[in-house]
């Protein structure tokens, strides 16, 4: 899947390790929550970046105390209509102060990117490489925001005061 980051399609340095699949020899890896929990100490000692992928029913509370060891959190959207990960993203950024990469994976649509962007995602597993161009267009659609979120964008309320 093409990875959209900083407005362009980039190479994904992470190797996705599903379930109990064998770990690669080296390099950044993205493991499931269950793997992280089972092999936490070994993974903390892994020589490269480690990411953890949370399913839609796995709250980030499960890794809140481990975030200093985690470079990437991937949150899954099993369907675009399943919006749990929007709350998880805000909790990670605003409550648990996670500063690593926050990636949206699963059913990620162009029309959702501005919502995802606002709650703290900074990379997106897209369905096609054209996504980057389409996102540039869509990003220009809306310029007014009413809700304060962790992204620090000025809300209409704040701009009115200034």
């Amino acid at each position: 899947m093409p990875l959209l980051r900083d407005g362009k399609i980039t190479e994904d340095p992470y190797t996705r390790v599903v379930g109990s699949d064998e770990l690669p020899g080296e390099g950044p890896i993205l493991v499931d929550l269950s793997r992280w929990q089972a092999e936490r100490d070994a993974l903390v000692a892994w020589g490269s970046e480690v990411g953890v992928q949370l399913a839609a029913d796995e709250s980030p509370a499960a890794i809140a105390l481990d975030l200093e060891h985690i470079a990437l959190v991937a949150l899954e959207f099993p369907a675009f209509t399943d919006g749990r990960a929007y709350s998880y993203a805000r909790l990670l950024r605003e409550r648990h102060r996670f500063e690593g990469e926050l990636r949206a994976v699963g059913d990620v649509l162009i029309e959702q990117l501005h919502f995802m962007d606002r709650v703290g995602f900074d990379s997106f597993d897209m369905k096609s490489a054209e996504a980057a161009e389409e996102w540039k267009t869509a990003q220009a659609d809306m310029s007014v925001w009413y809700q304060p979120t962790g992204d620090e964008r000025a809300t209409a309320t704040r701009l009115r005061r200034s």
């Binding site: 929007y86 709350s87 805000r90 919502f115 962007d117």
Partner: peptide, 10 residues
């Protein structure tokens, strides 16, 4: 506040 709330649109 509820207009296109990024957390609560899905």
């Amino acid at each position: 506040w509820s207009s296109l709330h990024p957390e609560f649109s899905f």
